Simulated assay, not measured.
Amino acid sequence: MRVLMVEDAVDLAEAVIARLARSGFVCDLATGVETACDFRAVQRYDAIILDINLPDGSGLSLLRDLRAEGDRTPVLMLTALISVDDRIVALDQGADDYLGKPFDQRELEARLRALVRREAGSKQEQIHLGGLSYFPADRSALLDGRRLELTRREAALLDILLRHQGKYLTKTRLYDSLYGFEDADVGVNAIELYIGRLRKKLAGSGVSIATQRGVGYRIGADG
């Protein structure tokens, strides 16, 4: 899951991003409206965490522009403004949820997951493919009833492959789901490494990852 956080309180943002990273989220930080627009111009996000008061404008204006463009990316407003009127304005402008500062980061993470599930139209708590059972809530998996040991990035890669099972995903699409702009020193070919690791862990299970040269990777059940 890739998230854009628009927040000018850098210390707060970095703490949130570090926590989200440990849970398998890829999070880019924009400290203002202009930077957020630049990021959105080149990257698709699964969710946006948006502060209202920003140094170069209002998060509400950014939200209005986003909705006017027809962009339905889930938006979680994160702000110190806590009055009922403030919440009503944000929700009326198209926000999907609202969390006041200070907040518990566990709640922020849970709300993000809920927003993405809602947008995807899926309430499923498990994803099954052959003998593989995947649990999105904690990004864990069972293979033929035994726990499958996964690193954070392996779990993130398995997550996106399973959510699009049966479809080929390009290397670039997978890379964008695993790495943020701060990881610019990591090449797109890193995906090949993680695909190879997942294949080894799935070997002999009846679940495999196919490669179509020039197209991408697809997970599916054999037979």
Rank of each mutant, 00 (worst) to 15 (best):
D85W: 07
G94K: 02
L91I: 15
D51A: 11
S58P: 09
D97N: 10
L66S: 04
L112F: 03
T79F: 04
A68S: 15
L81F: 11
D71V: 13
R67D: 09
V89I: 13
N53T: 12
D51L: 04
R64W: 08
R87F: 04
D85G: 10
S83C: 10
N53I: 07
G57D: 08
D97H: 09
K101V: 07
I88C: 09
A120H: 12
P74R: 04
R106C: 05
N53Q: 13
L108E: 01
L54V: 12
I82K: 14
D56T: 01
R106T: 11
L115N: 01
V89Y: 06
L62W: 09
R64F: 09
G59A: 11
D104A: 13
R72C: 08
L62V: 14
I82H: 15
R111Y: 04
L112D: 00
D85I: 02
V84R: 14
D96L: 07
D51V: 03
V84F: 11
P102K: 03
R64M: 12
L62D: 08
R64N: 11
L54P: 02
S61F: 10
D51E: 13
L63P: 03
R117P: 03
R113D: 11
R113T: 02
G100I: 02
R111F: 05
I88S: 03
D56P: 14
M77P: 01
R113W: 09
A68N: 14
L108K: 00
V84P: 06
I52G: 04
R87E: 15
L112A: 06
L66C: 10
G100K: 01
G59V: 09
D92E: 14
E107C: 07
R67V: 12
A90C: 14
E69R: 12
A114P: 01
D56L: 13
Q105F: 13
L66T: 14
A95H: 00
L115T: 05
L91Y: 06
E119G: 05
A114S: 13
G121D: 07
P55S: 03
D51P: 04
R111E: 06
R113H: 13
S58M: 12
A68Y: 11
A110S: 14
L76T: 05
P74C: 04
F103A: 10
R87Q: 15
S58N: 08
P74S: 09
V84Y: 14
L108V: 08
